[in-house]
Design a protein around this nucleic acid. Structure first.
Lengths: 141, 141
DNA sequence: GAATTACTCGATAATTGTTTTCTATAAAAA
DNA sequence: TTTTTATAGAAAACAATTATCGAGTAATTC
């Protein structure tokens, strides 16, 4: 993984810096789909001079070299995901967490849309929102 | 339709104003899914004193009384749709237009996600992006 | 119809997430 | 090393959206 991001950056003419490695490592070791501010806060302990601009610029690069995808779950800010397989996301409207949805077959759905619209579909984003199991329990108490 | 929005506004304690009618009429007579600025520009000819803030405030109200839905198709601004049935949207990455996707059965898909995640799903948004037929033709020339 | 009340318009300012600018500095190349 | 070039990070700029507030206006009451 380390090797992967290092060589990917170099190949595209980007420099390998501690900040970029730290941001990518943090993102790839969490399932929380953080936004720029969450990443910034998390890294500030280890990298006290880290700035939000660096997070944004790094995400731009990581997106470009195909290491992260940007989520737009209908909130006011973008979230980031180091898992590149295209999968739906579901957001809890009460606690705000965003989870992955696995084991769903998208292909048939995409094909249907492609044929119906005559568009050459390049990608898609599926966002669900609702109430997570934990918040459902909290509510029923 | 006119009657509908008028009484809906009154019922919820909102006043019926020319601006609100104009904004809703404009939105319900187009398929272009405009954003606030497009609505503003379109109406400025007829309503020279119209302000962007009024568009935003009106959209907030229309959303609240269930007359429009807000689309977040991964762009930098929101788009609005007076069609309230929940349908997927597809955006052309070349010309930027957003179209509706009809004749797609969502329910089975939603159920599958609901069961898989244990979430109580309240809603969802499906966004596709790709190249529209017109731009495909343009490209091949 | 007139008076009162409460909501609304729209100019302006504020806010928020994101991007740009600029310069010392760190990474890569020689 | 030394030289070259891209980057980090502080600060300013930006753009979309929201809040504030006084004047105006619709709805309600008399």
């Amino acid at each position: 993984m380390e090797v992967c991001i290092t060589s990917l950056l170099r190949d595209k003419g980007f420099k390998v810096t501690p900040q970029r490695l730290a941001i990518y490592n943090m993102l790839s070791s969490t399932k929380s789909h953080p936004n720029a501010e969450m990443i910034f806060n998390e890294l500030q302990a280890m990298y006290p001079t880290m700035s939000l601009a660096t997070v944004y610029k790094t995400m731009e690069i990581l997106k470009e070299i195909g290491l992260v995808q940007v989520l737009n779950a209908g909130e006011d800010s973008f979230r980031y995901d180091a898992v590149m397989t295209n999968h739906p996301h579901v957001r809890c409207t009460e606690c705000g967490q965003v989870e992955d949805v696995y084991d769903i077959n998208i292909d048939a759905f995409v094909n249907e849309v492609s044929q119906g619209t005559k568009y050459q579909i390049m990608g898609q984003q599926f966002y669900f929102h609702g109430i997570c199991p934990a918040c459902q329990r909290k509510n029923s108490n």
